[in-house]
Nucleic acid binder design. Structure first.
Lengths: 347, 347
DNA sequence: TTGTAGGCGTTATCAC
DNA sequence: GTGATAACGCCTACAA
């Protein structure tokens, strides 16, 4: 193993008794431009094939100060919401002959920093980050230094970086209004990472919908610490043990919803007869639950495309493209997890 | 933007009127070894901080012929089975100060080739690949050239590369036996990519279990083309439209199971009363289905750890570590999607 | 205790 | 038409 048969330009040039430059030019398709004879060109191409020549991108990037590579960092690749966005970004990049490399920050700002450093020290051309969300200095710093960044999903207020995400406020408000329209008054909100603007927007949408319908906001009904299943489970469990009056739970993410369903099942309650459920993040599996779960869908493809295009412009034209904040609309996908007419609590 | 404030060793050395080597050595913590005075060292470290020096890993890797970087390629990052493995590999790598970069081949061998090239031309130290599975030459080629590879999940028979995965034959057999034990005789198998060894092993396990129980194998009950939801859906739909006698379906992956459930729902059939379901790949969401789905669990963490360790050894000791084929046992997770006692078909 | 010089594999510039 | 040379930023013998 490790025969280190890596062939290089030097190797080929020696073998053919040509200069490195000539070989390089022929291989890069610049034969016409430099008037390299057809014969020589052919010779070089054949030798390259024979030696299985593959340009060393490290050397290339070092010289060119450009790597044709884009980094994507997400907080949890295990969450299909992010996995799908990543997939769309990759699709966009392929059309462009860019390579994308993915990194998972494991919902940890420290790992996020490390990932950024790993990318930036390898001189990727640009970065798309779905930040963990509780800190942001390292992001603006990276951006100022040299590499362009686009933020997705979780907007960071203090940051003046281009952003693409959903209109969480409106999405949350619409969902809450839908619940209210179905007769629900005692609606709990199982939230995500409290400090994050994304979460605050969703909470605000929920609260405003209540207010506008003259329903008193009960802060004991706003629970949860993070966007994951565990937090969703614990918060829901707490909620169900304390509040025998709620008729619906609105959850701030698919993972939180899974945890919430677990807690509901443990309490031997039935959706939607005993309690209604509505969640952010649409997922194909929601269709197959019994009952299918009503959700707020985000436009993942559009988020990915816009983010990629924004980044491309920044890279190509070396300009800031404004510090655009793009907020895409969400869509309520109505299934069967919300009870039609509510009269009294399940007590 | 793009101030290109990248600081380099040269920059720092000029600023301090020192040679590049000295600066390099101090920054790399070799002050003692080279007897650099404390004063100088301090000066250098401070300057590095002030200039926010970050080594250019491209240059470093080029020079060192080592990048402390490992590439992971999976066919579908959207499938939580792979996402979870990736997550475990990352965890293992972090303990080792290795950076891992992920790439998604989109279930397409061409993209897999491109991803491999992207990694190999950037001189990553090693590669963990969950191959698409219908071709393999490019893999052995890459390995022979220079970079060590470990294959996970889908074993490629012709290939003499180290492999870590599950014992699909036994897992499949155990599951089928469980179904038979519950009284099922007409069991359909909704399979994955037909050519892949992984799939063949699962089919073989299913068939052998039937044989050993003197149940005739009906090849019309073996359907499906691929590991994704779409294929699972179509195959199940076809199955249910033709065969009114089957009492159970065994699916070869979580995605296939989702598609199968969709088809079952469309037919207005009920699990497990009308038809039983059992699937490969355990997922947390299976718990929350109604009824919860019985599955064959693979040891994802163990697969990830073993693969990572194997690769590490290959990288460090530059040896082949045998062409080990590690097959880990699976575990049947019994939930409620298999009917307890079957007497007759649902017709 | 520090400096010099060569080279990792490319590409761009200038020369012939 | 082709070649020599410098440079990208870093590390490491070998000098001093």
């Amino acid at each position: 193993m490790k025969k280190n048969t890596d062939s290089t330009l030097t190797q080929i040039s020696k073998h053919l008794n040509l200069s490195i430059s000539t070989v390089s030019r022929a291989i890069n398709g610049q034969s016409k431009k430099y008037r390299i004879s057809e014969k020589t060109t052919k010779l070089i191409i054949e030798a390259a094939k024979k030696f299985k020549y593959e340009p060393n991108e490290l050397a290339r990037s070092l010289r060119l100060k450009k790597s044709n590579t884009i980094g994507v960092i997400v907080p949890d690749i295990t969450n299909p919401f992010f996995a799908v966005i990543v997939r769309w970004i990759e699709n966009a990049a392929r059309l462009n002959d860019k390579t994308i490399f993915i990194s998972d920050s494991n919902n940890d700002t420290e790992f996020e920093k490390i990932a950024i450093k790993a990318f930036s020290s390898r001189k990727i051309d640009g970065l798309i980050v779905a930040p963990v969300g509780d800190e942001s200095f390292h992001l603006s710093e990276t951006n100022q230094l040299d590499i362009p960044i686009v933020i997705i999903d979780r907007h960071l207020d203090k940051l003046n970086l281009p952003f693409v995400g959903s209109n969480n406020y409106e999405g949350s408000k619409e969902a809450t209004n839908y619940l209210i329209g179905k007769g629900h008054q005692k609606i709990a909100f199982n939230q995500g990472l409290q400090k994050s603007k994304l979460n605050l927007d969703r909470v605000r949408g929920y609260c405003d919908a209540l207010k506008e319908n003259r329903i008193t906001i009960n802060h004991n009904l706003i629970v949860g610490e993070n966007f994951n299943e565990q937090s969703g489970y614990e918060a829901a469990k707490f909620l169900l043990s304390k509040n025998t009056c709620i008729t619906a739970i609105f959850t701030a993410s698919n993972q939180i919803a899974l945890g919430t369903i677990k807690a509901i099942k443990e309490k031997k309650l039935h959706i939607p007869n005993d309690i209604s459920l509505l969640s952010f993040d649409n997922q194909s599996y929601w269709d197959y639950f019994s009952p299918p779960i009503t959700t707020v869908e985000q436009q993942t493809k559009k988020i990915a495309d816009k983010a990629y295009n924004l980044l491309s412009e920044m890279i190509n034209h070396n300009k800031i493209v404004g510090t655009s904040k793009i907020q895409l609309s969400t869509k309520l996908i109505i299934r069967k997890s919300v009870k039609d007419k509510v009269r009294k609590a399940w007590t």
